[in-house]
């Protein structure tokens, strides 16, 4: 059986290169694998495209990646928020590029990307400025937007439990983008709160099967 366990977040993110596309899970600060985002900052990579619902809370998570100059572009639904002024300041100064995506479309694009689907048709965004430049298609007299699937080089995942096969459970609403991002990247890296023996997780309760997971480390994030 392949060993997926590494000892530290630094080992877990080793090999991520400049210009990579990185999905960072989480909603607000819940479900954000900050051990892994911090480790990427230490790694000092540049030019990342980050796919994430938010742009970090205070100076944590994606906000720290932005502050440390690792990010060239962010694909995001709610980048300007009261939780952090980092994105706003950098965006207004022209230091980071933004692709704004409605939240449910961001989630579905990731699901499509992880499901081998090139794209899908939706009513969300029709007639709005976020439809600009997008292909439209009429089906049975209704106009839809064509939205494309999203994949990444790397997905950073925060889990509650992991076993030696990489099977994952999540905690409450920290589940959010984690299970879908875990399906949509070439390299899926997990920060888990706790490791349990193989067989300890009931198959009925596993949310992300270990087949999706390439590497995991056990890291207990400060609240």
């Amino acid at each position: 059986m392949k060993n997926k366990r590494v000892n530290t977040p630094a080992e877990a993110v080793a090999g991520i290169v400049d210009g990579a596309t990185v999905m960072v899970a989480g909603f607000g600060r819940s479900g954000v694998p900050e051990g892994l985002t911090d480790a990427i900052c230490e790694l000092g990579v540049k030019g990342l495209t980050v796919i994430s619902n938010n742009s970090g809370t205070a100076k944590t998570g994606v906000a720290r990646l932005l502050l440390e100059g690792c990010v060239e572009k962010i694909v995001c639904s709610f980048p300007r928020a009261s939780e952090s002024g980092v994105f706003k300041e950098m965006f207004d100064a022209g230091k980071v590029e933004l692709e704004l995506v409605p939240q449910g479309i961001l989630a579905e694009r990731i699901r499509a990307g992880g499901s081998g689907l090139a794209g899908f048709l939706t009513l969300t965004g029709v007639g709005t400025e976020l439809a600009e430049g997008k292909q439209t298609m009429e089906v049975d007299g209704t106009e839809y937007l064509l939205e494309m699937g999203l994949r990444a080089d790397v997905a950073l995942i925060k889990a509650r439990q992991v076993d030696g096969r990489g099977n994952l459970t999540y905690r409450k609403a920290a589940r959010n983008f984690n299970p879908i991002m875990a399906t949509a990247a070439e390299m899926v890296i997990v920060q888990a709160h706790e490791e349990v023996p193989i067989g300890a997780l009931d198959g009925e309760h596993v949310v992300t099967p270990g087949i999706y997971v390439d590497r995991y480390c056990v890291f207990q994030q400060e609240p």
């Binding site: 709610f78 980048p79 928020a81 933004l98 409605p102 939240q103 449910g104 969300t124």
Partner: peptide, 15 residues
């Protein structure tokens, strides 16, 4: 406003 934050508003208003 520059950029903006859309969140789930467009999906929810449509759905």
């Amino acid at each position: 406003a520059k950029g903006g934050s859309v969140g789930g508003a467009m999906d929810i208003a449509v759905g």
